[in-house]
Amino acid sequence: MTTVGEIRAANPRMTCRQVNVYYGDKHAIKNVSIDIGRNEVLAMIGPSGCGKSTFLRCLNRMNDTIEGCRVTGTITLDGQDIYDPDLDVVLLRAQVGMVFQKPNPFPKSIYDNIAYGPKIHGLARTRSELDQIVETSLQKAGLWDEVKDRLKHPGTGLSGGQQQRLCIARAIAVSPEVILMDEPCSALDPIATARIEDLIHELREQYTIVIVTHSMQQAARVSQRTAFFHMGDLIEVGPTDRIFTRPRHSLTEDYITGRFG
């Protein structure tokens, strides 16, 4: 099936061409091609099981951890094929960070949660450099003022929204180029959700963000471009305001008008 709309971006950070994903015999993603532009927020929407999360996990090769999962096609990051056998997946994941559906801080202190990534990558040579990274990351994630007095406290002791911002700060700490967010607000209340959405706005200036969401309002609020998935196919891509006002594909229209999903 050919995708409706404009899959190309002017100056893409990532490009995906003819991406297919199989779980054993199941064909989960079918021939998806899409660009992800610099400093844009790309929202991926679609009904449950449409493959949007699967596709997201291809972008930093988290699918590698799933047994029987096979990916074909090409995905590049700044022109470099990320499925190239020579490419180190650890390096890729440092460049493409990820935030998950459920907040999953390490059962360690707030400080250690942030410092872990920089430590294993050797991003800080001294203790004070590390302190600096922790502080900036928390500030960028808008959490600094709330936790600066209790950095040694366990990260799991924070509220759900704070935990999710902690996870964002943890992703930021290794200075990625792209941040993948897999339904980051689905476990949060509306106030915490609003804070995260504000944060996404701020982060857009420095990072490329791909967000999977169930909420069309959220997609409309945070993203510049929107991609609609259905049963493993990428049905339609385009500027967010156009998708939500003048969808070209009937499935897209049915979905955004709430006729299914």
């Binding site: 390096l91 872990y116 996870c167």
Partner: peptide
């Protein structure tokens, strides 16, 4: 595991 892998462990 996911969290650790996602920060590049």
């Amino acid at each position: 595991r996911d969290a650790a892998l996602a920060v590049g462990a």
